[in-house]
């Protein structure tokens, strides 16, 4: 039941970032501010729930994005999202992070995600723009958006995910 709620929530975030959000940014910035709302939710799942559910969510919704917006490559977002979510969960999951450090982790992770996507496209020659330009043009402006979204959903997400963990305590965890 709870896992279903999580999937539904992430699906809503996916719809929000693909169908609603393009209308919320001013037209001049639509190429520069690119939302990764599903990624932020996956990060919270990794931090406050478990790395396995984060891996599943990351791979699942990455794959959904890859298939729905099938462009040059298939599986790129599934791979990067799943991998980053799993390692963040492995390193930091289960620890009681404060709000600031959680936000810092989410920001770093989305920077890592953007860089990974950029490098894969560069390796396969789908883009030829220099990294400095990509950073300045879209990665940093988008980072602020990700940060704002992470801040906005921090408290409900944490309560919800931690409530889920508390409902079924696992042996070995505090």
């Amino acid at each position: 039941m709870k896992m279903q709620g999580m999937v539904l929530l992430t699906y809503l975030a996916f719809i929000l970032q693909t169908s609603l959000f393009p209308w919320l940014v001013p037209a001049e910035f639509s190429d520069r501010i690119i939302p990764h709302f599903t990624f932020v939710i996956v990060m919270y799942a990794a931090l406050y729930h478990s790395r396995h559910s984060a891996l599943l969510l990351g791979v699942g919704f990455g794959m959904l994005q890859d298939i729905v917006f099938r462009g040059h490559l298939l599986g790129l977002h599934a791979y990067t999202m799943g991998l980053i979510a799993y390692f963040i969960g492995l390193m930091l999951g289960g620890r009681r992070l404060t709000m600031l450090s959680a936000l810092a982790v989410v920001t770093m992770a989305s920077l890592l995600y953007d860089l990974a996507v950029y490098y894969v496209y560069e390796v396969f020659r789908f883009t030829s723009e220099p990294l400095a330009w990509a950073l300045q043009d879209r990665i940093f402006p988008s980072l602020f958006l990700q940060l704002a979204f992470a801040l906005a959903i921090y408290i409900p997400m944490r309560r919800w995910f931690e409530g889920m963990v508390r409902l079924k305590p696992k042996p070995g965890k505090e």
Partner: peptide, 14 residues
């Protein structure tokens, strides 16, 4: 148009 891709290098529309 029903959706825009959230990927800067692959801005496909549905």
């Amino acid at each position: 148009v029903v959706a825009v891709s959230p990927d800067a290098y692959n801005r496909t529309l549905t």
